[in-house]
Every structure is written in structure tokens, then in C-alpha cells.
């Protein structure tokens, strides 16, 4: 059933994901809902439990789930490393940018009420939401990167097996 790799001794999943309909279908059904829940957790961080970190991890879990079922190579096809690298930095920049915007608006660094001087309470909520987005984006992409990097040998092996060699 589950074959062992001759060199590393690692157990290998059966090759053809096309034959595992239960996994395939349930993964494709679940992933959108997990992502939706993650967005809910991130955006409602200032109202209920949760926030950028938790929501980001849940979002990454959706992608990692996809990677577990379909293989890390397919996951990288879906969300290339270039994008995750970019988003990693973009999240931190968004967080710091909100703070800098407040500083330039004449308030303290990270004092969100400067975002909306007419309604400080709204500015407060907006600033915290933006900051949570930043945390969520960074955490999501970092966790996806960790997963892809850790499973790299296997992933590269499967990629290599698909290489057509022509003499």
C-alpha cells in the first residue's frame, strides 16, 4: 500500500492523487471555507477573539492542506514562491506604513485615531484592522514558506520524476 523510499526510508503517499477521490473532493470543498473563516477571523479581530496571527495561521492551514493532498509542487504552482516572498514583506510594510502615515499626519506613531480625525473611533477601528491585515499577510506567507521549504526534497523529487529526459 504505502511504499517506502529506497534511500531515505520515508513513506510515500500513493502517486496518483487522481485516484483518491475522497481526499481530492473534500480538500477542494473545504479549502474555500477555511479561507473564508480565516478572513472572518482577521477582519473581526477587534470585535471578538482572534486577529491577524490566528487568522493568518488558519489561512496558511488552508494552503498547507491543499499542499498535503495535492503535493507541494502543485501548491507552488498555485501560489509561487515569488508571491509569498513579496507578501511576507508587504505585510510588515503595511503595518509600519500605517504607523508612518499617522506620524506624517501629525500624530504619534501607530496612533490610529489620526486616520480619521473627524471620527477617531472609526480611525481606531480602521487602523487596527489594517494592522491585523498586515500581520495576517505576513504570517500566512511565512507559514506557507515554512511548509514548502521543509517538504522541499520530496517536492523536488516528484518534480524531477516528471522531467522528460531526451537523448
Amino acid at each position: 500500500m504505502s511504499k517506502r523510499h529506497p534511500v531515505t526510508g520515508a513513506f510515500q503517499a500513493p502517486r496518483l492523487i487522481e485516484h483518491q477521490s475522497v481526499l481530492r473532493v473534500s480538500c477542494k470543498l473545504l479549502v474555500p471555507f477555511i479561507i473564508m473563516f480565516a478572513v472572518y477571523v482577521i477582519t473581526h479581530g477587534e470585535l471578538g477573539p482572534g486577529g491577524g496571527f490566528q487568522g493568518g495561521v488558519i489561512m496558511a492551514a488552508a494552503f498547507i492542506f491543499y499542499g498535503l493532498v495535492f503535493g507541494a509542487s502543485r501548491l507552488v504552482d498555485r501560489i509561487p514562491s515569488r508571491i509569498t516572498d513579496f507578501l511576507m514583506a508587504a505585510g510588515v510594510l503595511l503595518y509600519a506604513g500605517v504607523g508612518l502615515h499617522n506620524l506624517l499626519a501629525g500624530s504619534n506613531f501607530l496612533d490610529y485615531s489620526a486616520l480619521n480625525p473627524a471620527h477617531p473611533s472609526e480611525g481606531e477601528a480602521l487602523g487596527m484592522t489594517l494592522v491585523e491585515y498586515g500581520v495576517g499577510i505576513t504570517v500566512t506567507s511565512v507559514f506557507i514558506t515554512i511548509y514548502v521549504t521543509i517538504t522541499e526534497p520530496r517536492f523536488m523529487r516528484s518534480k524531477r520524476e516528471n522531467v522528460k529526459v531526451t537523448d
Binding site: 477587534e46 486577529g51 505585510g91 503595518y95 506613531f109 501607530l110 487596527m128 511565512v142
Partner: peptide, 24 residues
């Protein structure tokens, strides 16, 4: 309404920002 978010994002905004930087 969520005190924890208020603490994390406003009182300790610097702290959380550099935590994010650590993850980055």
C-alpha cells in the same frame, strides 16, 4: 470591544509590529 486586540494593536503596537518583523 476586544481588549486583547486593543492591547496588542494600540497599547503595545510597537511590540506587535516587531513581533511581525520577527516572523518576517
Amino acid at each position: 470591544p476586544n481588549t486583547v486586540t486593543s492591547l496588542l494593536a494600540a497599547y503595545r503596537g510597537f511590540d506587535t509590529m516587531f513581533e511581525t518583523a520577527v516572523i518576517f
